[in-house]
Computed example of a mutant assay.
Amino acid sequence: MEKNLLGTHVITQIGILVHDIEKTSQAYADFFGVANPGWSITGAVDVAETEYRGERSEARAKLAFFNMGSLQLELIEPDEHPSTWREYLDEHGEGPHHIAFGVEGMKDIVTTLARNEMPLLQKGEYTGGRYAYIDTLEPLKIIVELLERDKKK
């Protein structure tokens, strides 16, 4: 395996799958003594351009973000459509889904990871950037998410 595949080792986010985002986000807010951030829903497929395992997917999810200093906790409640979120929640239940890293040059990194037997699971766009989930379950025991922000003009 090649080394330093991402160009960074700074984890920016931990993603946690849940069945009930309202209940779980309130539990986190109470536990940490912080405001409940509420939740938002991911963009529809025509905006998010969501692809799962190489196929267009209608998948959406409710997301809640807790900014915890240098690390963000993301709670994810997926809908019923095919996605890495739905598959993982159905197979493993609630709990950690991914660790995320901010990257530059996502296309090249995705290609490098695929060459190293870590294929792309899901990708999509969001306001201000894009994401890609990589199948790193075998070597790392968790999925890796790449986050690439649009460059400021």
Rank of each mutant, 00 (worst) to 15 (best):
L121G: 02
G15C: 06
V47D: 14
G7H: 08
L137P: 00
L120C: 04
G15Q: 06
E49N: 12
K23T: 14
A61S: 11
G7N: 06
R56T: 12
K23M: 11
M1W: 09
I134Q: 03
A35Q: 15
G129H: 04
A114E: 15
A61C: 04
Y52K: 02
Y126H: 13
D79Y: 04
E22S: 11
L73R: 08
S83G: 07
I143S: 01
F31A: 15
A48R: 14
Y133G: 01
L17A: 07
E94Q: 13
Q26T: 11
L73S: 05
I109N: 03
T136N: 04
P139Q: 10
A132Q: 01
I109P: 01
R53H: 13
I142C: 11
V110S: 04
L137T: 14
Q72P: 00
G129T: 11
D46I: 14
G38L: 02
Y52W: 08
G124W: 08
D79A: 06
T12M: 12
H97D: 11
R56E: 13
A114Q: 12
P37C: 05
A44I: 09
F32P: 03
K123Y: 10
K151D: 13
E148V: 02
R149M: 08
I21P: 00
R53A: 10
Y88L: 13
G93M: 06
V144A: 07
P37I: 01
S70A: 14
F65C: 02
G69K: 09
I76G: 02
K151W: 02
K141M: 09
G43K: 12
N4G: 06
K153R: 09
D150C: 09
I142A: 12
